[in-house]
Nucleic acid binder design. Structure first.
Lengths: 190, 190
DNA sequence: ATTCACATGTAAGCCGTTACATGATTCA
DNA sequence: TGAATCATGTAACGGCTTACATGTGAAT
């Protein structure tokens, strides 16, 4: 059976905001939802071609931005009525449970195989990464509040608050866990 | 370039606890780390064969449990010294950043395309799922506290607390977001 | 002169999921 | 008799990542 193919809908959804090129889509993903979604060119460009063949999007035109620094002409795609229908249909459907795989936790689960400092260091790296992402989210929020407020801008804000909540919780857990493991180590050395 | 293949290390790590069959591994994964890691037979059995060929594990014997209800004999694998070395090596390496994809958030990001109730219903489902998982985690914790305490049991406890913290944060976010969206909808209808 | 950003695309290949196949034994 | 559990395995395939290819024009 076919698997998910959510890239398809990520692209359609982005094009529902406004016509864009594949390059634009990648940039928006990286700059606004990277903390919970990633895409790469190797998937985007073939999918744009496929969606185009299926009539869910159409090539609106080729152009070159004024500020641009060269390169080939941009291929700007727009979503069609059919494409809008498809993405809405997807939005109506309840999604299946995520089967996330958190490598950090798997490694910690097997922590008894390595010295404690190795596990602690891994958690410290996680904490630092989370702190950095939280900073980025802060700047995204600043941008969002600077822009105009309307119904459309509402939804990006709630995904943003998910990210903030999540990374704060991660940082908390990291700090508590580091303290706990350090305490335990000291107790064992006595 | 080769991708991650973390199933490999999940299996090796589990076999570092004790010799097991593929069926056992799947059961342990489902019963103790399912909230952050999933595996399936279609991946486990071929991987066991591969690891065996590579000498990282070895077939310790075939048997049948006393309480068992038939079926083919279990193939019990044990990790080898070489296998232990391999899993330790992996544990020492910092892991790359996860590229998680949270479908709920992607759908919410495009929330402007569907009626508000659809988005709210999706968040409610997420909240309910999180509540259920939190219940399961509670029972895992109870089991853990009932068992004997040693260095090995320490690490499963910290992954457990990650799960608890995470799902509590998710529930909080769901409730705040539902309230926020409902308030906004009411404001718009006025 | 070289780096950087722009921009599109293909090829290879692993990872992981799903569906299917098989069959013995226990319990209701 | 039929359902459920135990248990191992294969086949097919899609999704996604990574690496590679190509080239322009602006800025330092």
């Amino acid at each position: 059976m076919a698997q998910k193919n959510r890239t398809r809908f990520a692209i359609l959804g982005m094009l529902a905001f406004q016509p864009m090129s594949g390059y634009d889509i990648k940039k928006i993903v990286d700059n606004s939802i990277a903390y919970f979604w990633k895409e790469n060119y190797g998937h985007i460009y073939p999918m744009l071609a496929e969606l185009s063949r299926e009539g869910l999007i159409k090539l609106q035109g080729r152009d070159r931005k004024k500020e641009t620094k060269g390169g080939p002409e941009r291929k700007v795609y727009a979503i069609t009525e059919q494409g809008k229908k498809a993405v809405k249909e997807w939005l109506y459907q309840p999604h299946a449970a995520e089967n996330s795989r958190i490598e950090l936790l798997l490694k910690l689960f097997f922590g008894m195989l390595v010295p404690m400092e190795i596990s602690i260091a891994a958690i410290e790296r996680e904490r630092d990464a989370a702190i950095n992402i939280l900073k980025e989210l802060k700047s995204i929020r600043k941008q969002a509040h600077a822009g105009e407020q309307n119904e459309t801008s509402l939804f990006p804000l709630i995904t943003l608050s998910y990210g903030e909540k999540h990374y704060k919780a991660v940082i908390e857990w990291c700090e508590e866990t580091i303290a706990f493991l350090k305490k335990t180590t000291k107790g064992m050395k006595k």
